[in-house]
Design a protein around this nucleic acid. Structure first.
Lengths: 151, 151
DNA sequence: AGCCAACGTTGGCACTTCCAACGATATGGA
DNA sequence: TCCATATCGTTGGAAGTGCCAACGTTGGCT
């Protein structure tokens, strides 16, 4: 039992690969959880940003969430069609659309928070509370250190 | 300074997102390191598997590395063109190609190991030796727990 | 006035991962 | 022996993601 499904030794021990494997599992779990509500990660990110920062332009929300302007269009379309967001022209700057979360959007966001919490639980299942705190701390330090722009 | 570049609060604290952020950084660093040698991750994985398991069919190497059969074709093509692998028909089973690493391939693999070690160092830079061991342990437990097949 | 920057939107490119189908070959019963 | 089934390498392409360019519109600056 020295094998990870036959994965080559050299790969098995690489922290970069372990991180990637964990991220793949996490993404798979999170995507599946959000799919229960017919939603993808962009939708959740946009709802969350819209709730936290209040009415904002699409460009501003894109900067907050890292979603490209062009992809933002489709995401806002989806959520507006479901009445979770509303999009209205900004009277003070007619280039902008003001995107705001609706009451229904807040309810959906709360629902998604529950699904997401369950997904975190599933992801972290093998770890106890102390280990989870340590992992979060270590990953936060890594993410902060590498968090700059990459050009 | 309670902001991660303005990322919404709900997202900032999610272990799944932290893991993903760390993985993005790790992949970026590793890909850039391998690119110095004109190589991608598939190439390294295939060289490593070929070195560890000896002459094998493409399908067997695909199972070891998780590379799809169809993508394996192009990867073997690349490495064979550089004389790092050789591909020969299997006389005992004419459906199979036997893929083996060459002496030059072993040298290149050693070279890539060096690049990869430097990449790990860059990735883990903010952590001391003890923290690195802890991180590896925690990630290994997560990866093992979620390591099965997903159908 | 003129110039430059930001906005939303459209369209499309590049890349990765995955799947389907094919002909060739092997294997295991009936 | 013959037939069904499976595996092999290979080709082609679908689907999703992230990214970028360009456009017309609008605003800010000098």
């Amino acid at each position: 039992m020295d094998n990870d499904e036959g994965t080559p030794r050299r790969l098995r021990a690489l922290p970069s690969r372990l991180t990637n494997q964990a991220a793949l599992a996490a993404n798979r779990i999170v995507d599946r959880a959000l799919a229960e509500a017919g939603v993808r990660r962009y939708h959740y990110a946009l709802l969350a940003a819209s709730e936290e920062y209040g009415p904002s332009s699409q460009a501003a929300l894109g900067r907050r969430t890292g979603i490209d302007r062009s992809d933002m269009v489709a995401t806002v379309n989806d959520l507006a069609a479901r009445r979770l967001l509303k999009r209205a022209p900004d009277p003070e700057d007619r280039r902008r659309n003001i995107v705001s979360i609706t009451a229904e959007g807040r309810r959906e966001l709360t629902h998604l928070d529950g699904l997401l919490a369950a997904a975190q639980e599933e992801f972290l299942a093998p770890l106890g509370a102390a280990d989870r705190r340590i992992l979060t701390d270590l990953l936060t330090r890594l993410a902060d250190h590498h968090g700059g722009r990459h050009d």
